[in-house]
Structure formats: C-alpha cells, structure tokens
Design a protein around this nucleic acid. Structure first.
Lengths: 395, 395
DNA sequence: CGAGATAGTTTGACGCCTGAACTTATCGAC
DNA sequence: GTCGATAAGTTCAGGCGTCAAACTATCTCG
C-alpha cells in the first residue's frame, strides 16, 4: 500500500502534465486548444505544460493542422516518435523475444529467437537476455533514440513490491532478482527495469494496442503451456495484492477430473490447456488441429467444445467474483476462437448471475503470441506517459 | 471509470485536508505538530487545515495533551463526537436493523427489528424502513447531532453507477431505486444516501472496526441465507466493475453435487450454506448445531468439516485469482469458526499456489450479524472523513 | 479588404504551501 | 525563583501554478 503523501503545487503540475500528455496520446494530432477543451484546463495552462513536454522531447509539434472552416489553424501535437522508447523482453519457455516500441506504442523493431529455456540455469539465460537487449540497444542507438525503460515478461509469479521472480515452474526458477542479473551483464542506461508476469503484460498489450473500442474491463485468458489470466479493470492491470493474482490454471472444474501435479484434481489446465485439447482431439500439434477443425472433424470440434465448456466454468466464477463485462481469448485460444466462442458464451450465459440482463462479451485477441513482449515494451513507455514529470525530473 | 479532472490549488487543499483528517482519525489525541510530522506537511499548513476542520465541526480540540518531558504541550485533536453522524439501515431477509454511529465509528444507538420481508412489496418494506429511519433521526436530533449521510445495506446486487438495486432474489425485488423510495417517505436532510450490498458493507465494517491490526487485504465471507463475499484490497472495497462483484455463492465446487435454482450443479451455497450444514448435521437450527458441536457430536463436526472443505475449494480459487493474503469468516461462519478454521486452512494450504511460502490467514470476524448495518452507517461517515472538503463545500 | 471566428500568448491576480522568524508554554537546573 | 532548553503553534513574506481576461495571430467568407 502506497502511503499518502502531502500535495503541493508540484503535485498539481505533475497531475496536469499527465492529463495533457494523456489527451495527446489518445487523440494524436490534437491542438493546444483541443487539449484545453478536452481536459478542462485553460489554454494558458495547456500552453505552458505543452511547452515543457516539447522541451523534454515527449511531444512533437507537427505544424499547422488541416481543418475546414474559419479561424486560425492550431498546431498539431502528437507523441514524439523521437522520444524515449520502450524495450521489451519476454523470457518464454521455448523462445526469447525482444521488441522496441516508440512512445505511441508503434513497433520499431522486433525479434523472436527460438531457445529451449526449460531448466536452464538463470545465469545462462540472463546472458542470452543481455545479448538480446544489447542488440535492441544498438538498434535504438542507430536510430538516434534513447531507451526510457525496459519491461521483462516472465512465465511465473512476480512479487510486485520487490520485483522478484518468486516462482517460474516451467523454468524451474525461484527467487530470481532479474534486474540485478541484467545490470551486471549489459551496459544499460539508468533506465527503470520492470519485471512482470507474461499473462499480465499480454492483457495490457491487448488493452493498449488491441484496437478494441471501449474495452477497459476484461479478463484476458492466454492458453499457452499453462493457462494464465490478466485482469484489467478501469483500464488498469489488477494483479492482486502482492502481484501473484490471475492464477486461473488451477481452478477446479471437475471433481472427478485427472490429477494435477499441484495436488488437486480436475484443474482447468489439465482439462482445457493446449495439451489436453490436442490429446482429446488426437492431433499432433496445433496446426494439425486447426486443419481438422477447418474440415469439421468431429473429434476436433468435440475437443474444442469440451475445453470451452470447462473454460466457461472457471471464467463464470471469475466473472461472478469480479463482475468484469468481457473475456478476451488470447494466445492459443485466439487461434481456436471460432470454435470456442459459442460454447463459451453459452456456458457463461448459464452460469453468470448478471448475464440475464447484461451478457458477458467474448472477444478474440488481435495480437498473437507477441502480446506479452509488446505489453512489456509498451509498459515502459506507458509509465512515462502516465507520469511524465517523474521522467523529466529523473534526468 | 471516473474521468480525470484538472487539478488546481483547491485539489491540493482537498487532498491535504483528507490527509490531516485521516491522521487525526487513525491517531486520536494527536497534536498539530504530530500531524505535521506524520503527514509531512509543515506546521503552518496543518494549523490552517485543522482550523478549517474545527470550524466545520469535524474535529474537536480537547485541550492540552499529557506528555512527559520539556516543551509546550500540544492540543489534543480528535474526531468530534458532536460532528456529523452516519445512519445505517439493513434491509435483511428476516429483520430490519438500524444503527447510528459518530465520526469515530462508535455506535450511539442501534436497533434490530425482526420482520419477515420475504416477498413483501417494495412499498410496504420502504414504509417500515422510513419509520425506522425516523426513529434514528429523532435519536440524533435529541442528541443535538446532525446526520451526514445514510447507508442502506441490501441482500442483492447493487449497480455502482446508478445505485439501483438490480436483483434481490430472497426479497424477490428487482430494479428498485431505494433512495427515491425513501426520499418520498421520510423527512430526510439533504444527506447522501448510498445503497450497497450487505456482504460488502460487512467486509468494510470488519476492516474499520474489526480490531484486526494491519489487515488491509482480505476476503470477508458471510454465511447467512446465501453466501456473499466482500473483497477488501488496499483497505478499500473492491466490488467489481459495476458493483456486482463478490458473488461467491454459485462457485461450482462439486460437479456431481445437487442441482441449484440457478441452473448449475454443486454450487457452494447448496453445499456449504447454513441450511446445508444444518441438514447434514441433522440439527434443527444453529443453536442446536452449536450445542452438538460443543459436545463433539460426530455428525455435527463432520458436517462442519465437509462445509469447510467445500468453502476451501471456492476460496482457494478466489485467493489464486486475487492474491489476497487472508480470509475472514463472518456471519454464521464466525460462530462456527472453531470447527471450520482448521479444515479450511488445510484446504487452502493444499490448493493455493503461493501458500507454500506465504500461507493464507484464516481469521474470525469480531462483529456478528450486525456487521452489515455497522458498515452501512460507518460508510457514511467514512465518506466524510475521506473527503472532508466535499462535505464542507456541500453545506 | 474587413468582419467574424478560432488558436495561441501575455499579464495580473489569487490560492495554497513553504520556510524562517517569532510567540507561547512547560520542564529542569542552578 | 529565574534562566535556558525544548517543543507547539502562529505570523508573514515568497514562490509556484492555475485562472480569467485581454491581446495578438491567422484563417475564411462575403
């Protein structure tokens, strides 16, 4: 819990700077007058704040705007493409991905490297990560832009207060201080390094760059090797008290179901995970499954329906508890969306108490497996946009 | 989602007023200098703010404090017992409770009236509520205090944005505008009326007046006729996006379990609700059950263990999802606590992923069935303490 | 080319916090 | 008993950031 701090004029300026920058971010090309109208601040204040933001290299003045009708043209403002960039890394179970995005979230460079990280020592993996980071840093240097922050997505439980990776079952890591490991291996600028769970970052990427209108509250379910959920409420990530939230994979959905390494029976992961679907369908891999689904194969569609029903049982509990109006299917589930959506909607409609007057939306993720890296990179720049004064004071 | 507003000097004052009043509320008897040290504001600012708060009747100056050592004595500040009071009403299924509390949350008057409200028309019940409110208002008038706000606890789903009671299954009500119904029936001051779910109010009461130290994050489970959960995170209520959150009663805990009116099978409410426990134990009512538990009766203790295990299944999902470090047993469960706690702890320990390094606390509620009314009344005064400027400007 | 409309800047005022000096109050030592 | 040390509370000038209003700049239309 962040303890409340006294407010002063600087607090006001900080708040309003973020307000102005947020307005420019959500409506690129807006004029100072437009920002004033949108935020409720006066033109004078907006001018003063915008000048500061331009001075810090966060906002770009693109000259007079095109607009019909009488009156002087405003100057078109937008987030500066030359401003600080965000660098994202995802330490996946079987790949390593990096990504460089500008302030608007646009991807400038991206690379995915297949590596089997299962049970590799922390030091080895971090050396790889450092090399991958160096590559992106050179990319940034070549484009004459600075890196304002780094986001690291990991498949495990990250403690919010310390940034420690507490458990990563599929990597067999525990209690790893990733920022510390990296700082020793790569010539980083004094940028902030923030570590987070991949499912959470993926949910944020979907929120920011998924292209869904007015989707500020949802649960993003990513079916990868495990099943993780990212909860977004009020356009903000909700990751629980200590950051360990969103663990959906071990929701019990069948008291007679198969045993799970976690000790319980009938965990969602065992019944609706990627491996479970493939096995039930008798398909070798995801591509084979998709082929057979496309031809209307009975076993394949049956497996999808079965998984969707189990997913619906778990998600209906989530919706009843959190009252989120929509579910986003990501990761593997995004590719299976056409076959999952209907049975999932049916299950949710039957089990969610508020569904009778307010049905739960089921939406397909637009970002694929890259969602997590994108989210990690975007988080770094979002942190700057959300609090530009902190960034400006820091340098 | 509340859209961000521009900040000005008034925002600063508002924030700091709340900060100062909060410091006085959490440390009664503190001096101006103490508040300054605790909040980080200067003595000058604190003096100015405190004077305003005293002027508004929110803070009481109790003369010089007792303290050893040299130096001038500070003046002892505390929330004014003569300040605005909070009035709470709970429309229960089989009772109607009212409660009047002062700014500190201390109960000044309380009354519970047994009434069977099942399936009574809205108008009839609201007439009773109005009469009960009038009684408390006369009480307040007799004590020369004003009522600063009214909280209404109801057993149903309340929409946060509108304050409408959407569904109350056990009353058979839907879409009731309780503030509107009341304003026509009782001579209210222009006080704010806030309607909320009883489980949520109960959780807040536990947070504020439960006497638990450093318990700012928990799920409060109240086992009454239904099973409701109030989620408190960061010392604030989390009631979901639209306010319908916390519905725990229909979590599926046994895929072979009995059918539930909701349409599903094996809902928690059917397996761990008060009626289910009594039936399994073969007890006529709760007192009979407690008697038999006290004697170590096998059927009774077995029924308790059985319910606790089912409750554990549902709560472990909640904890995995929200990462709350503690569970508070309230309502009927509070009375059964000695027999529920151990099996519940065992179930949570086995099913919660983070339990291995951070066990989930299981705590007994200290407030009984009065928690909800208390919470409703306290909410009204908390709203004033949390934002005193809004209260001061309003009058 | 001038009236009207819209964008952006300048200027003075106001509110609120801050820091330092000042007043008030109490204790302990001589 | 008086003096000095210590702490609480008040007063006052100063700074900062927003606001309102006046002013300048630019564009369209008649």
């Amino acid at each position: 819990m962040t303890q409340p701090r006294p407010a002063g004029q600087h607090t006001v300026r900080r708040h309003n700077s973020a307000l102005v920058l947020g307005a420019i971010a959500t409506a690129p090309g807006i004029s100072r007058a437009g920002v004033a109208a949108r935020t409720g601040l006066t033109k004078a204040t907006v001018s003063s704040l915008v000048d500061r933001l331009i001075g810090a290299g966060l906002v770009h003045d693109a000259g007079p705007e095109q607009r019909p009708g009488p009156g002087r043209r405003g100057t078109s403002l937008s987030l500066s493409p030359a401003g600080p960039h965000g660098l994202g890394v995802e330490i996946g179970v079987d790949y390593l991905a990096t990504c460089l995005v500008d302030l608007t979230g646009a991807v400038r460079h991206e690379r995915i490297r297949p590596v089997d990280n299962r049970f590799r020592p922390v030091a080895d993996v971090c050396t790889d990560v450092a090399a991958a980071l160096d590559e992106e840093l050179r990319e940034a240097a070549g484009a004459q832009v600075t890196v304002g922050g780094i986001g690291v997505a990991v498949p495990g439980l990250v403690e919010a207060s310390t940034g420690l990776l507490r458990r990563a079952p599929n990597l067999d890591w525990h209690d790893v201080d990733i920022p510390a490991e990296l700082r020793g291996r790569v010539s980083l600028p004094d940028a902030a390094i923030l570590v987070g769970n991949e499912a959470n970052f993926a949910a944020l990427a979907e929120l920011w760059t998924g292209g869904h209108d007015d989707l500020h509250d949802f649960v993003h379910v990513s079916g990868e090797i495990g099943i993780g959920a990212g909860i977004v409420i009020g356009a903000e990530l909700f990751s629980g008290v200590r950051g360990f939230g969103g663990e959906l994979g071990h929701f019990p959905v069948d008291s007679d179901g198969p045993h799970c390494p976690c000790g319980a029976r009938g965990c969602l992961e065992r019944l609706a995970g990627q491996d479970a679907i493939l096995e039930r369908a008798g398909a070798a891999d995801l591509d084979a499954l998709l082929d057979r689904l496309a031809t209307g194969d009975g076993a394949a569609t049956g497996a999808a329906r079965h998984a969707a029903a189990r997913l619906g049982i778990a998600l209906s509990s989530v919706v009843n508890l959190l009252d989120v109006p929509a579910v986003v299917l990501g990761g593997t589930y995004a590719r299976l969306y056409p076959w999952l959506a209907e049975p999932l909607r049916a299950e949710l409609g039957a089990r969610v108490l508020s569904a009778s007057w307010s049905p739960v939306g089921v939406v397909c993720s637009t970002l694929g497996t890259e969602a997590a890296v994108r989210g990690a990179a975007a988080s770094a720049v979002r942190a700057i946009v959300a609090d530009p004064d902190a960034f400006m004071d820091g340098r």
